[in-house]
């Protein structure tokens, strides 16, 4: 399909979104990312039965944690799409990029001195 999606999206491949752990997402924010989204299979179609449903609950939990620390729950999201929906993958990548852009850079980074 040769679809393009924003180049700021860094893909971390996992065997199933059931592998997504709360700590994994928090570590990403600690490393300085502005947002994280989990792209899982359609609900009810998980090869491992409930991996994507568990991932959604963990994403919801992280939303609460990010609210607590003042980063805002909007910086993390869960999307569902099937392997054949490349169009949707690109669309969600654009949607999330736009959302994060409107939220601005992660406040965690504002005090980090970047090398020139």
């Amino acid at each position: 399909m040769r679809l393009s999606y924003p180049s700021n999206v860094k893909v971390v491949k996992l065997p199933c979104t059931g592998r997504v752990d709360v700590l994994l997402i928090l570590r990403a924010f600690e490393s300085g990312v502005d947002g994280v989204y989990v792209a899982g299979c359609m609900e009810g179609e998980c090869h491992f039965l409930r991996g994507n449903l568990r991932a959604r609950r963990r994403v919801e939990y992280v939303k609460g944690l990010l609210e607590e620390v003042g980063l805002g729950g909007g910086r993390v999201e869960m999307f569902n799409m099937s392997a054949s929906q490349g169009q949707l993958f690109a669309q969600f990548a654009r949607e999330m990029t736009e959302r994060i852009r409107s939220l601005g850079p992660s406040p965690v980074n504002k005090n980090v001195k970047r090398e020139a």
Partner: peptide
């Protein structure tokens, strides 16, 4: 794990 989560929260908050 929970030590990791609370520590990450503290680090994120203070970094912010």
């Amino acid at each position: 794990r929970e030590v990791g989560v609370l520590s990450a929260e503290l680090r994120l908050y203070w970094k912010k």
